Simulated scan of single mutants.
Amino acid sequence: MVAVTEKWMRSSLRKHESLVLGMLRRHGPLTRGELGDLSGLSRTTIYTVVGALLDSGAVRASVPTVGGRGRGRGRPAEQLSLNLRVADLLGIDFARQTVRVATMTAAHGRISSASRQHGPDASWEERIDIARWLTGRLTGGTPRLDTLGGIGVGLTGPVGPPGEALPGSVHRDAVSALVSERFGMPACLDSNTRLATLAERTWGAAVDEQDVLYLCLSHSVGGGLVVGGTLHRGAHGVSGQFGHITVDPEGESCPCGRVGCLETVASIGAVLGAHGSATDVPQLVAALDAGDEAAYAALARAGTFTGKVLADLCNAVGPGVIVLGGELTGAGPALMEPLRRELDANATCRGSRPPPRVRPAELGDAGAALGALALLLHRP
Rank of each mutant, 00 (worst) to 15 (best):
L284T: 04
D37C: 05
V86D: 08
E200Q: 08
M336H: 12
G364T: 10
G33L: 07
V86N: 10
S218R: 09
A77L: 15
V4N: 00
A298T: 05
E252I: 07
P143M: 08
G325N: 02
D208C: 14
P161Q: 08
G184E: 09
G168V: 15
E209F: 10
A300H: 13
V285C: 09
S115D: 05
G163Y: 14
R353D: 08
R194F: 01
D248F: 11
S112F: 01
R172A: 08
C261G: 05
W203F: 15
S113N: 04
H219F: 12
L19I: 10
A287N: 02
V271R: 03
V20P: 04
L377H: 04
G237F: 01
F94Y: 06
V175N: 03
R14A: 15
G91M: 00
V247C: 11
W203E: 06
T202V: 03
S123W: 10
M9V: 10
G320N: 03
V63S: 11
G273W: 13
R137I: 03
P162C: 13
S123V: 09
D121N: 14
E209M: 14
R69Q: 12
A131R: 01
A52N: 13
S277R: 15
A372P: 01
G157A: 07
T279Y: 00
G269Q: 11
L310S: 04
R194Q: 10
T65Y: 02
L38P: 09
L328D: 01
V170D: 14
F183Y: 13
T135K: 01
P64C: 11
S267Q: 13
C216E: 04
P162D: 09
R43T: 11
R14I: 07
P143Q: 10
L53Q: 07
G28D: 06
H236A: 14
P120W: 14
P255L: 06
L324E: 01
V281P: 08
P333G: 03
A114M: 01
P338S: 00
L376N: 12
K7R: 15
G149Y: 02
R201F: 02
V207Y: 15
L262Q: 06
S18I: 03
H27S: 12
K308W: 04
A102L: 09
V317T: 14
S239Q: 02
D344W: 07
L195Y: 00
V238T: 15
S42M: 08
V309T: 15
P354K: 07
V285A: 04
M336D: 03
S180F: 02
L231V: 09
C254F: 15
R132P: 05
E181A: 15
N346C: 03
G22P: 08
S176Y: 02
R233K: 11
H236L: 14
A196F: 01
V153N: 00
D93V: 00
L53I: 06
T103D: 11
L213M: 15
G351H: 12
E200S: 06
C254D: 09
T147N: 09
H171D: 15
D312Q: 13
I322W: 00
I92P: 00
L155W: 00
L166F: 14
A174V: 07
G228Y: 03
G332Y: 07
G228A: 12
L310E: 07
